[in-house]
């Protein structure tokens, strides 16, 4: 089980990583990236089971990352975890091929429930 965890905030990556570890993902199974460009470099050189990404990031944002991932892989689950809550943004992400969507802020239970949908089957 390998997860690509993308957010420019180290705080957010730590919170999400904590949840993943509780769900049984190993420390070695989580690869972190601080923007879409760094993430796509990892995505291109390694095999992943899930991508979790923020939207607003410097260098390359999460929507651009999603589109690049979908150019080469239509199946991998891509979960967007973002402050972008407007309906129009969600629709844009769906049209780009997002698999699931979580709006910040979230409680620990909400994050856990969202990731439980995707992670346990693959651990």
């Amino acid at each position: 089980m390998k997860i690509l965890l993308v957010d420019d905030s180290g705080t957010m990556r730590t919170i999400q990583k904590r949840c993943l570890l509780k769900l049984g993902v190993s420390e070695d199974g989580i690869v972190e990236a601080e923007n879409g460009q760094v993430a796509f470099e990892s995505f291109s050189s390694q095999s992943f089971d899930i991508v979790m990404t923020d939207w607003n990031m410097p260098v390359m944002d999460g929507l651009s990352l999603l589109k690049k991932v979908r150019e080469v892989n239509k199946q991998i689950p891509v979960i967007m975890i973002t402050t972008e809550a407007e309906r129009s943004r969600v629709v844009t992400a769906i049209e780009a091929g997002v698999s699931d969507y979580l709006v910040k802020p979230f409680t620990a239970d909400t994050l856990n429930a969202k990731l439980e949908k995707w992670v346990p089957a693959m651990v």
Binding site: D8, S9, G10, T11, M12, N56, M57, P58, T82, T83, E84, A85, E86, R87, S88, V103, K104, P105
Partner: peptide, 28 residues
């Protein structure tokens, strides 16, 4: 510093969503 920046991001994002008709974009 990172945590405070992320809190501001979430507050601005929430307000932005409540003002969706203004079609705002968030900076970093």
């Amino acid at each position: 510093v990172d945590a405070v920046g992320e809190l501001s991001n979430m507050i601005a994002g929430g307000a932005k969503a409540a003002m969706a008709h203004l079609n705002l974009s968030l900076g970093l």
